[in-house]
Structures are given as C-alpha cells and as structure tokens.
Amino acid sequence: MTSVNAAFGELAAERRIASAPLSHVSIELGHLYMEDFEAGPERLREQFGRVAPWAAAVRSGWQRRIPGGRARVSTCFLIDDYFSRFSTPAELVPMVLEAAAEHDLSIDYLARESSCAEADGVELARLVEGRLVDDPPPGTTGSRPPVKETGWLCNGSRSPRPGSVQAMGPAQRWAPPVQNAKRGHSIFVDVELWDENGGRRTWSCPFLAAVWQLLRLGMLRTEGELPLRPVPAGASWPARWDDLPPIVQLNDQAAPFSAYTTLSVLSPRFLPVELAVRTVLSQVAVDAEVLEQVRRRSDGEGVALEDEIVDRVTYVFG
C-alpha cells in the first residue's frame, strides 16, 4: 500500500447555506396602513383597480421572457401592524381578499409588517443592520472606522461639524454634504434607520421596507437557514395580529414567495420612502454564498439578472 486518501470533516467548521425556492417575480399588490383602512373598503378597491393592469402586464412580460411561458409569479400583500395596530385579522383579511377578487387579483401571500422587525424570535431588522456596509467617501483608506451617525445611513459625506478640536486652532467652516457617486451635482440622502425611546428601538418605515424587499428576494439567512417560511392559512382568521403567522400562504398552488425580482405598485406619495429604501438596499452586503446560489440558479434557467440587488427591485408609481 503506498498511500491512503484520508477524509476528515467537521460540520461545525463548514458553512452551510440553505437555498430559497424562487419565483421569477414577486408582485406586491398593496401595502395597507391604518389611514387606508380608515378610509374604508372603497379606497382598497380603488387601489386594487389601479394595480391590476400593471400586475397583468408584468405577468405577461415574464411569460414572454421564459421559454414555454412557464413564468413563476407570486403576489403578496403587506399589512402594517408595526407602526399602528388597527382592526383584527378576522375582520380585515376577508375584506382585503374580497376587494382584490373584485379586480381578479389573487393574493398568494399575506405578510405582517412587524415580522420585518422580528418574527418567530428572529430579528430580521437586526440581521440586515449587521450587514450594512457604509458607502465610503473618496479618501476612505480603512485607517479609521467608518464615520457613523448612530441610527442613520447616508450616501455620501455629511457636513462637517462646526467648532475646533484644538485650543487656539482654526475653526472648521461649514461645507455642504456630498454624494459619493455624484455626477456633477449631489443628491445627498440621509436616512434614519431607527430611533430609541426609553430603551425601545423603533425601526423606521424605509428600513423595514428594505428588509421586506430583501425577504422577497430570498436574500436573508439566519445561521444559514431561511429566517421565515410561509405558513398555509388556517381554517379561520385569528382575532389578534400576533396570532397570525408572519407570512401566510393563501393559495396552495402559488409560486414561491421569494423571487429573483420584485415589483411594487405604489402611489407616488411613497417616492421619498422608496428613495430611502434604495439608499439602504445599496449598502446591504448580501452573503456572497447566497448571491452565488441565486446566480447559479438563474443562469441555469437562462434568466439574466441584474448584478446589483437594488436593480432587481422595480416599481410602478401611479
């Protein structure tokens, strides 16, 4: 015997990353806030009426793109139970489903906004916060830690603080903030990620919306596992929001919840929020292994994806 090939493995030493089932596109049919609810079912119907043609267009667009027309399209609907609590699932959900059905829209998945902060003991918002890699202004050598304004994230350099740091030294003068990737002139964006009151952290709406996008893109993992999986709807709707699973699957034939790309149909009043969402998304470092998994899958089925995560998120404002 000359040599023996020995193999030795240690599971704890390896990184194993679960892969997410993926549709081609995840269409968000709506996002319900208290004010919409208070405006009554008419407002909901109107919303779905606006969304329906766009959803149909996107669906047929993907069907044309995919050989055999077998595009996997899933739809979802988000209810805000984080910033304000209103009504009950038992009262609200049937109303939403009915209004959607009137426009021939079927909602595949229903999600609660608070699950983007925390669900089933997993703090999704914290996971994403830990993955923020700040956009470095030119001249960032790594010699000092990134300049942070706790709880804020921006796309450039903030104005320097006035005042001097040395006795009898020159005082700092005001200077404008600058966008890092500016072309000619700056569009400087500074997003509040969270604030804290009495030790309790409240995540901002754009930050949770960024988490929501990443969740729909199947980009999040905790300890290598998918943080949330849709749960089939029960026979009846609970009376408390906390008793509703974070993501409920309403249609058992639905294509997977997460997808290569997302589409959200929104009222233009959400434009500033989505600018903030994109500012956040473009500074989230998704796990390299997850990126690679998705790339391999999409390549495998001949779907060309944008390299940048933020470019896989699309909108219709109208």
Binding site: G163, S164, V165, Q166, A167, M168, G169
Partner: peptide, 12 residues
C-alpha cells in the same frame, strides 16, 4: 505644534 484639546468627543 499641537495645542491643548478644546473639547472631547466620543470618537476621541
């Protein structure tokens, strides 16, 4: 040529 500190911030 350094001077006395004129303030202490958290970063320092």
């Amino acid at each position: 040529g350094g001077g006395e500190l004129s303030a202490v911030d958290d970063e320092m």
